[in-house]
Amino acid sequence: MLNKKLNKSLRSLFALLVLLMGVGFSTTALAADEQSSKQQAVTENPADLWRAVKAGEPGFTTYNSLESDVLINVVGNDGRLVRDTYVKPAIALSVVGVFGAFLLFYLVNGPSKLEKGFSGRMLERWDKSDIWLHWVMAVACLILMVTGIFLLLGRHFLAPYIGEGTWGAIIITCKFIHDWVGPVFIVSWLLSVIKWMPLQTFKLYDLKWFLVVGGYINFGPFKGKHPDSGFANAGEKMWFWALAIFGLFVSVSGLMLVFPNLDLPRVASMAALLIHAGSAVILIAFTIVHIWMATVLSEGGMECMVSGYCDENWAKQHHNLWYDEIKANGTLKYQDD
């Protein structure tokens, strides 16, 4: 009796499995038939086929690369529109606009003079490793900016006025230099961030620095206002953190772009291109400001990164808290010591 019940249960279970398999095969066949019908309909209607291709819908290919079944890169087209509409004008504005604004400010305001003049006593501000690190990164950064501008905007302001052969040679040279100087910038940027980060924390007194524009204005209620500042003033700290953050973005995205064998999705590649260019816009603008401030707007400022020493009156006027600190703890070192 038990065997009969068991056999009956097994037969019922077997029948249920056969039924489920039949339903599954039927569903699969219907789905395949429906897909085949759709593909046949698209094939028979060229307009529908081309509409699907332009929409980025995947098809069939024997090539096994990532996204090789998509004939038209819709993301790439959209990204190109974003680049041409927003990124390229932003780069042009960061170069021409920021430079022009500081030129106008300089013509109206003039440089920030030392109120007590040069003392003639030079005290140590940077050591030799800092100077080398700064200039290696600075030169690499400037080369990357110039070649990057040629790569992105050269076809608009240069290519129409020279021959195709000359333009081709220029663009190939810029691409080669850009790719090989990039690692130099990345290494020097990383060392700079690690070495200088402890000096770049924001303090409450930095807020006043922004409120009086660092004491660089020579007219009106801001004239003669020299706010407290440590080793780095608030403007230098803002420049450092812009370099740290957007230098990271431009470095990672640059590595993604220079190694095509990574076989990244098209969305990732286009995102890397836009992030790279967008970060470059910000770094170019900050670099122009940095160069203006170090060369012509701050009397005695450039000497710091040439010899590593600054005039004592410059230190008292622009970095008074740092000067008081090193004088109090006995680490003040004059150039002749």
Rank of each mutant, 00 (worst) to 15 (best):
M270D: 15
F118D: 09
I143L: 07
E115N: 12
W135S: 03
L190M: 14
I177N: 00
W292E: 00
A138E: 05
S188K: 01
M238R: 04
I282N: 00
A32D: 12
W322Y: 13
S94K: 09
W292A: 10
I72W: 02
L243R: 07
K333Y: 10
M21Y: 08
E325L: 15
V181A: 01
K4I: 12
Q335P: 05
D84I: 03
H276G: 04
L144W: 01
D48V: 10
N313K: 14
L107G: 00
I284S: 04
T331S: 09
L255I: 11
A272E: 03
H156D: 15
I194V: 10
C174S: 11
G168I: 02
T62K: 14
D179R: 06
V281D: 00
V267D: 09
K333E: 11
K208E: 15
A47I: 15
K208A: 13
A315E: 07
K5T: 05
Q200N: 15
W132D: 08
S68F: 14
G76L: 08
K237T: 05
L81P: 02
T61L: 04
F222Y: 13
D206F: 14
R83E: 15
T85R: 14
G230K: 10
G165M: 05
I149Q: 06
Y86C: 14
P260Q: 02
Q39K: 14
I284Q: 04
L211T: 13
V184Q: 02
Q317A: 06
V95P: 09
L262H: 00
G308S: 01
S192Q: 02
E124G: 00
V139L: 11
D48F: 08
K237A: 04
I91C: 06
G330K: 12
L248A: 10
L211G: 01
M1R: 04
A272Y: 07
N3V: 13
K8W: 04
I172R: 09
A272S: 11
W50D: 12
E124P: 00
L19N: 10
S94C: 13
Q40A: 13
N77H: 13
V53T: 10
V136C: 06
A138Y: 03
I131P: 08
V193P: 04
Q200H: 15
K4C: 09
P160N: 05
R80W: 01
D311I: 08
G117D: 13
D127W: 10
Q39N: 14
K223R: 14
D69S: 09
L104T: 12
G301H: 05
M197I: 04
F249D: 06
S298Q: 13
K88E: 11
A277W: 04
Q35E: 07
A294H: 00
V250A: 01
Y334Q: 07
R125V: 14
M305Y: 09
I177F: 01
P198A: 12
L255W: 08
K88L: 15
T61F: 04
E325T: 12
F202Q: 02
E124R: 11
A52K: 04
D228M: 14
L321G: 01
K225T: 02
Y323F: 15
G24H: 11
L257N: 00
Y63C: 05
F102N: 11
D48L: 15
Q39E: 13
N109Q: 12
L13K: 11
W189R: 00
N45I: 03
H178R: 02
V184G: 01
A15S: 13
C141P: 03
L17N: 06
P160M: 06
